[in-house]
Design a protein around this nucleic acid. Structure first.
Lengths: 213, 213
DNA sequence: AATCATCACTATGTATACACTCGAGCTATG
DNA sequence: CATAGCTCGAGTGTATACATAGTGATGATT
């Protein structure tokens, strides 16, 4: 693995996990010493992060971790809804029903995954990730997939902030199941509606958690 | 201006203007000699281009200019429609009517711009660009704006390929005028419809031109 | 004759040294 | 006392030298 990839992954993790808080200044020399690589790969990593919007160049003062404001959350979800509503509709038209049927039944059993001892809820989030991947694959549009991937990074960071409680995760699993069911049924309009409902509730939850801080 | 910015702009121009054809290999040393800078800024420029999708890393063999296939055009327009239809609706809800009213009347006079001696149609494309910027500003959503900017680069490259004829440009101006009018009138549904019509015709025209090659 | 292994070359990946720009803080002057 | 200019410094921007990996060709072997 290339040093620049390791530097990128490491910094990305640190930002997503809130170990590097918004406003934190990432100086090239400082980070290169911390990560044990030279400035060159660190520089490339910072460039990638800035392109993704996780950091912004602060002219001559290094790059700083971007802020997560209420407005930015609203804006992010506006784009997210635009893309995912369309994605759900396209998946309903083009996807393999069997794939989404299987995901649907798995999502209905999601409460089992959440009851287990698993602080990170890894199995649950893996399952949700599988739904995302299945939708990406069903659409088979690299531009659309790239656009959705680029917002998922920000969503993970916000999710960490929201500290999802069990009740919300149970409800979210049911909403995901409804989306999978609509896609499996080949019903674009229903898939759109289920996605709109899910995103609306998700946004409400996230904003409430954000304001609580 | 930084050397890496110049290298980036120069390479981007070369790709968009089809001086660098799809499949062309961009070796770092070769380009650094051609552009008169060292490998470092060239490397950064190539990284940015690859992130945008204008080039792809071809492991060990340098980066190559991405191909423009019929399928990729379809995919690009699918994302474009998703974003711009939503953008038009939001602009109709949030925009200043006066701004779009002015653009509407200017677009109706577009044929004057096209009749002049101007092989590049710069004044015409400037006007269309102003409409794009006005929509971006009206929406005031940086994520959405970024997503739309990222596809415009590819559109310009495709446009060069299409070799727009006067007839198509006259029709396109009228379609743009219709979009501006709908936004000025604060009618989201109409703005969506006008955008769908415009993008459908634009895609048909581009694909015909692409197949002619 | 075909296929596999090896070798050399080429191009990228990384480290480091140097140049330059932008800011902050201090000093001198009105 | 306030403000403008200067100096110093930290940090990025660029160049170059070195390490490394991947690829293509060439030769030998089956």
């Amino acid at each position: 693995m290339r040093a620049s990839d390791r530097a990128y992954s490491s910094l990305r993790e640190d930002i997503i996990e809130w170990r590097l808080r918004p406003g934190a200044v990432l100086a090239e020399v400082e980070q290169s010493e911390r990560l044990g690589v030279s400035r060159t790969p660190v520089r490339e990593a910072l460039g990638r992060l800035t392109a993704e919007g996780l950091t912004t160049a602060a002219g001559g003062r290094g790059v700083v971790v971007t802020d997560v404001s209420l407005e930015s959350i609203d804006e992010l979800f506006e784009l997210r809804e635009t893309l995912e509503v369309r994605a759900a509709a396209l998946a309903a038209q083009r996807g393999e029903p069997a794939v989404f049927s299987e995901l649907h039944s798995q999502l209905l059993r999601a409460p089992e995954l959440l009851s287990e001892e698993d602080p990170g809820r890894h199995k649950y989030y893996d399952l949700v990730g599988q739904l995302d991947e299945a939708i990406d694959a069903a659409i088979s549009n690299s531009y659309l997939a790239t656009a959705m991937r680029s917002i998922r990074v920000h969503l993970v960071r916000i999710r960490r902030l929201a500290a999802d409680d069990a009740a919300r995760l149970h409800a979210a699993a049911a909403e995901h199941a409804a989306i999978a069911e609509a896609i499996a049924g080949g019903n674009p309009r229903l898939a759109e509606a289920a996605t709109i409902v899910h995103l609306h509730r998700s946004l409400t939850h996230v904003k409430a958690a954000h304001q609580a801080r």
